[in-house]
Structure formats: C-alpha cells, structure tokens
Design a protein around this nucleic acid. Structure first.
Length: 575
DNA sequence: GCCGTTTTCGGCCCGACTGTTTTCAGTCG
C-alpha cells in the first residue's frame, strides 16, 4: 500500500473503532496518525524500514506495526478484523449531517440497518420515529440529510465557497449591529476544498444579525438558530455557520473558529500545561481572570509563540516552529512578478494574445509566459510547428510595442506515453521555456508513470513540470506517481515544479510544499489561464503556497525578469 | 493508542445547539 492508501486505511480504522464504541482517544489516535502519514516527507517504505517513522509525532509502537504490515504485505489484518465486526455501511451513514457514530450504532443494533439505502427506506416507513432517542424531527432531518448527500458530494471548491462566503459576509457586515466580521474556518486557512463556510461577527446585539443571516438570499434551509450561533444551507448545497461574540471576545473567537481542530487542541493543551491557562472562544483565562489580548497576535504572544498565519494552523509543526522562532516568512501576493502558464485562442484559450497581454499589463506583471498546447493535444487545438513560428512572430511584434511587460515564448508540451516531448529539438529550442504536462494515458502503473515523467523532466529543454499529479479536485484522482521522486529529480535537474493555481487543481498539493523547499526545488505558481479573467486564480495558488510553508525565495515567478531568464538558460546549458 | 523539563501511568480541549428528554446525550466544529 502506498502513502495515500495507508492514510485512508488508518482513517477508516479510526471511524470503525468509533462505530464500535471504542475509547474516543484511541479512535482519535488513528485519525491523527492518518494525517501525520499524509504530511510525512519521503518514501513511506523507507521510513518503515529504517524505523524513522516511529519518530513522527502521533505514531507509536502499535500503529507503527500496523503500518508496517500495510506497507510490506499490502493488507491490514486489523482493518479486516474490524470489517468483520463493524458493518461497512455504517461508515457511509455517518456522512449524514447530524448523524454520528452513536446513532449509526443505534439504528444498526435496534433496526438491523446496514446501509444508507436501508436507512432511507426505514425513514420512509416511519420506523425511526418510535426508536428510543429518536423522534419525528430526527427522522425528517435524517431523510433530508440523505437527500442532501445524494445531491452533493459534501465538499466544495475553494473558489465556489469563497463567492458564497463573500456574499454572506457582506450581509452580516451590512447590519448596523455588526462591529466587524470575518470569514474564519477552513476557508481562512485556505484548504483546497471546504465543507462549509464559517463566519464570525463581533456584534452589539446578536438577534438582528442572526435574522439577516438566516434570511439572506439563497438560503434554502435554516438548520439551527440560537442566540450566538446559526447554521444554514444555501441552495448551492453549501452550509454556513455564523457565530456572534462581543467585541472583546472577537480575537479569541477568531482564533478558535479559524482552527483547525487539531491546531486548537494543541494550543489549548499548551495553554493549560505550560501556563495553567484555559483557552476557549471567549478568552484566555487564568482561573476566572481574562488575560487581555487585543488581537490574535497577542494571544500567541501570551503563549510565548510567534504569530502563526492562518494557513499554517494545521498542527503540522507550526507551533514548534513558532516557539523556536523558525516560522517561514510566507510568500505574499505582491511577491509575484509574472505569470508563466497561459493559453490563448491559438489553442484552447478564449482570449487572444493581445487580450491576455493587456490583462497582464493591467495586473502589473513584468512577464507573461504564453504556453499554448502542443500538436498532440488535438482536443485542445494544439499548435503545429508552423503555428508556433507564426505565434513567435506575433510575440516579437507585440514585445516591440510593450513597455514594462515582456511576453515570453512558451509551450505546454504534452508528455507522450513514452516520456518524450511533443516537438523535435529544433522547435523546442525556439521557446524561452517549456512546460511539460501529462494529458493522456493516465492509467500507467506507478513505476511506469514515474519513469515517463522523469524522462520528460530530464529533457534539457524542459523548464517546468506542469500540474504534477493531474488531479481534478472533487472530480478525478491524480494519476499514480512517485511525487517524492519527481521532486528529487526536479532538484537535481534544475527543473521547476508547477503549483497550478486553478482551483480545480491546486496541484502541487500543499502537503509537499515543505518537501520542495527542503530539496531546493523552485515552485512555479501558474494560473493555467484559459482567459484573461482567469489571472484572478493566482490568489488561490498563492494561498496554497503559503499553506505549504513557501517563501518568496522558493517561487520561480517571484523572480524578476532577468533572473527568471537566467534560471531557464542555466537549465538549458547544463546539458 | 499516544505521550512525558510535572508523568512510563493517567491523563488526553471546550462549548453551542438540537431533540428528546425532565436533566442530558449526541453531534459538530
């Protein structure tokens, strides 16, 4: 089993243990071990063989032994044992909002229900109404929850969530009782997909703000409405929570509702164990006495920590780094000097070269790398050799007219199934830079896919590896590839790796940011724009780069034009 | 099951809201 499969198996073990009514701390241990594996750098097999994995926080002897078996024997006896004991269908049931492990066990034990479908049928037969601890309202909610699951996958792209979030935030901010408000939760942490939108508001009076929120345009159902908290579901299927607090509580509440849960747990444990403080959404307390903090920064300071940016709050080493003053100086939007992966009407873009150039100029970029598809990508109108020459003439002419902006000649060359590029050398050498990407034959074995991409990366004309796993968030898994190996090759070859900023991709995954940094790999944050308007996705790319601990010095397109061209030339002349 | 400049055993974050209940369990974040 590979890293991802092991993480999923551990997660499933945690869920099954929870369903079996096990000690909650034990079940949590499996969940946190799963996340530790996801984040771990390097080859899992190697980490197991050397025993290095035992040094990872959250992995002890028992879980290590289970991982060892998964890696070496491609199975988990423990998971099989649990499957025999706990019905697999219960796992899907707990995806229903408001329906957790206890209720799943109850319907299983008392009504013999083993799947989502059976549960739906039982609701239709009114069998839950009479069940102890349930009732009419519970049954209605469960039925609605099942319908909800059928319509939506339960997670949303950051771009979709953000547009709803900004609209709801405006509604809250528009209330005269609101002092200030902010989007918190996973959206503030810039997770690549989110389950819901958390909004926090400091208010003079809560009631009218709650009313405005629950009556906002697009609200389909009001799932809960209380004095300080309301939950709604929009017609888009996206759920949103509003929490209201007083002005004084706001900084603590902002930290609390930004999370993540794991980060909060670690922060509270630190407050309690190191200082004897209690930390919650209302404040930091020594006994009953509030320890004043005017903003989030001061809360961290009181706990002897440097300020941790929201994107880093995943309990992935940020607290230890903050303690030692070793947090990264995160990339900022203004560090980005240009964009390098842009399509025009020459292939499958919707705006012409002139139009994207104008947009890049207006965005204040120093350079614009035009990278239309290569000839094999017929579905995307890939350029033939003659078309390339034509485009280059057009770019030369345009560059003569432009003042600050420089257009760079690039291509997004398909990586063919055998790992070769789509143009002969005599064409490749005419480009300033070459992005290489996989767009076909996704189903190779891990070894074959890795070999294919490594071969393409070793081509001396290759400058950037495009969307390294090919994943489409919420739609398609990436192809199976040894990403760690690709990063090592990138480091050795002087090839940059793309962090595709399109919210459907966000590929390189942020969990590999630290690894890229440690290996000295340059990361290119590319819009993969198919229109001038799509430059706006750069904000997601920068957010994900920040989440991956990247600094300006790690990012290829944070370089000025001359330095960027030197990077491309150095790569080419190294062979 | 994990973890330890308090501990190798005994802890493990904290509170809001709902629904089904007469005081609280379950769920969520």
């Amino acid at each position: 089993m590979n890293k991802k499969e092991v993480a999923e198996a551990l997660e499933e073990i945690g869920l099954l243990l929870e369903l079996a009514g096990e000690n909650p701390f034990k079940t949590r241990a499996y969940g946190s071990a799963a996340r530790a594996i996801e984040r771990s750098a390097g080859d899992l097999k190697g980490l197991v063989e050397t025993g290095e994995l035992l040094k990872v926080k959250g992995i002890g002897d028992s879980i290590f032994a289970k991982i060892k078996q998964m890696v070496e024997q491609d199975k988990s006896s423990y998971l099989e044992e649990l499957h025999a004991k706990v019905h697999r269908g219960l796992v899907e049931m707990i995806r229903i909002p408001g329906f957790g492990p206890k209720r799943a066990r109850a319907v299983h034990e008392k009504l013999g229900i083993n799947s989502l479908g059976e549960l739906e049928y039982a609701c239709r037969e009114n069998r839950l109404v009479k069940l102890e601890g349930f009732g009419q309202k519970s049954q209605d909610k469960i039925l609605a929850g099942i319908q909800f699951l059928k319509r939506h996958q339960g997670r949303f792209l950051i771009s979709d969530a953000l547009s709803d979030a900004e609209r709801l935030l405006a509604v809250v901010q528009g209330c005269k009782e609101t002092i200030r408000a902010c989007v918190a939760g996973s959206l503030r942490r810039c997770k690549e997909t989110v389950k819901d939108v958390d909004i926090l508001a400091a208010v003079r009076e809560s009631g009218p703000v709650m009313d405005a929120f629950t009556k906002a345009k697009g609200v389909e159902t009001v799932a809960a409405k209380g004095d300080t908290k309301s939950s709604i579901v929009l017609s888009s299927g996206l759920a949103s929570d509003l929490r209201t607090v007083s002005e004084k509580e706001y900084p603590y509440a902002l930290a609390h509702f930004t999370g993540s849960a794991e980060h909060n747990i670690a922060m509270r444990a630190r407050a309690q164990q190191k200082f004897g403080y209690k930390l919650n959404e209302y404040g930091l307390f020594k006994g009953d006495k509030l320890i004043d903090a005017k903003d989030e920064k001061e809360i961290f300071k009181k706990l002897d920590l440097a300020y941790i940016e929201p994107e880093l709050r995943e309990n992935a080493g940020e607290i230890e780094a903050a303690e030692k003053g070793k947090l990264p100086n995160l990339l900022r939007m203004e560090d980005i000097k240009g964009v390098l992966h842009v399509h025009t009407t020459a292939s499958d873009g919707s705006d012409s070269l002139d139009e994207v150039a104008k947009a890049a100029e207006e965005a204040g970029y120093l350079y614009l790398g035009v990278t239309d598809h290569s000839k094999t990508a017929v579905y995307a109108g890939g350029l033939k050799e003659q078309d390339v020459l034509e485009q280059h003439r057009a770019i030369d002419n345009l560059n003569k007219k432009l003042k600050k902006l420089r257009i760079l000649k690039g291509t997004e060359s398909d990586i063919l199934p055998d790992g070769s590029l789509d143009f002969p050398d005599k064409v490749l050498e005419r480009f300033d830079f070459v992005v290489v990407s996989v767009h076909s034959s996704f189903n190779l074995s891990r070894a074959e896919m890795t070999k294919r991409i490594v071969k393409a990366m070793k081509n001396p004309y290759t400058s950037i590896l495009g969307h390294p796993t090919g994943r489409l968030l919420l739609a398609r898994e990436g192809y199976d590839v040894d990403l760690d190996e690709l990063l090592k090759v990138a480091a050795g070859e002087g090839v940059a790796v793309e962090l595709n900023a399109d919210p459907h991709r966000l590929d390189l995954d942020w969990r590999y940011g630290k690894r890229a940094h440690d290996l000295g790999v340059k990361v290119a944050i590319d819009p993969d724009a198919h229109s001038a308007e799509a430059f706006s996705v750069m904000r997601y790319g920068v957010g994900i780069a920040r989440k991956g601990w990247l600094e300006a010095g790690d990012v290829l397109n944070a370089l000025e034009t001359e330095a960027l061209l030197r990077f491309f030339q150095k790569r080419r002349s190294s062979k």
